[in-house]
């Protein structure tokens, strides 16, 4: 079983993260970086599948893939320490600004050479929140797919996944191999590497893939601007007894034609 996990390195988002309003995004030169939280849950889900398959028939390989400049190697190393077997670094500065569709096209190239049984990636990224890369990649690579899974197990033909829907309903979907699923956050507890895991990870392969400029896809969308959320400070504080407050609230809702 070969599982590809596509991992994104995202800027650590805090309330004091500076924006670069000229560039139209976070000032990456001032940011610290972490692996995308959703992708770590995907990695853990992948490792649990290969742990099980290794117990069963000795097979199972998790390959973690990330696209970006040199700093992305840190995220790949973290993934190797957690337990991924090897890594692929799609190297280049151009990937920072690529949209979901262009990245999906790049990752399709990786899928073509690696021929995975399963692709797992996070439901969305902590920075972009688009939730588009997974389904786009599945479509381009012609993989059976499901988004937002909360459980997965291997079956004879492929994988059985569970998706949590609005209202607390669950959908169970059987996917034929090769398949792709995007993973919801919090579905498992990501294993904490031991010191032995950390040292062992240093010997694991990180292959660098540099795509020729001519082969690089272009983004179909572009980010126009980014700005901090504004506030006009207009708020009315209702005061008085509970009955008085309720009356005032009802009157206000009526005025706004909400009721």
């Amino acid at each position: 079983m070969r599982i590809l996990v596509f991992l994104r390195q995202v800027p650590r988002l805090r309330s004091d993260t500076p924006l670069d309003e000229t560039a139209g995004w976070i000032d990456l030169s001032k940011a610290k970086f972490d692996p995308n939280s959703y992708d770590l849950f995907a990695l853990e889900a992948a490792l649990r599948l290969t742990d099980a398959s290794q117990t069963a028939d000795g097979s199972g390989e998790v390959v973690v893939v990330s696209a970006g400049p040199k700093r992305v190697v840190d995220a790949l190393k973290s993934a190797l320490e957690i337990g991924a077997h090897r890594a692929i670094h799609v190297f280049g500065d151009c990937y920072e600004a690529m949209d979901s569709l262009a990245l999906a096209r790049v990752f399709r190239t990786v899928c073509e050479s690696e021929k995975p049984d399963l692709v797992l990636t996070g439901f969305m990224s902590d920075d972009g929140n688009a939730a588009a890369l997974g389904p786009m990649l599945a479509e381009l690579a012609d993989f059976a797919s499901a988004t937002g899974i909360v459980a997965i197990e291997a079956t004879a033909a492929g994988y059985r996944v569970e998706r949590e829907l609005e209202g607390g309903a669950f959908e169970v979907v059987d996917l034929d191999r090769p398949a792709l699923a995007t993973v919801q956050s919090g579905i498992n507890e990501v294993r904490y590497p031991s010191l032995k895991d950390i040292v062992a990870a240093r010997k694991k392969r990180i292959d660098t893939l540099e795509l020729p400029a001519a082969e690089l896809p272009t983004s179909a969308t572009s980010l126009l601007s980014v700005a901090p959320a504004g506030s006009d400070g207009a708020a009315t504080l209702l005061a008085g007894s509970v009955d008085e407050i309720v009356s005032q609230l009802v009157a206000k809702l009526d005025e706004l034609r909400v009721l």
Partner: peptide, 21 residues
């Protein structure tokens, strides 16, 4: 300084400055 048997995760998310044999 800890060895492999003692090492664990802290609530304050301490990072490792170095790991060697």
């Amino acid at each position: 300084i800890v060895d492999d048997e003692l090492f664990g995760q802290t609530q304050a998310f301490h990072k490792l400055a170095a790991v060697e044999e």
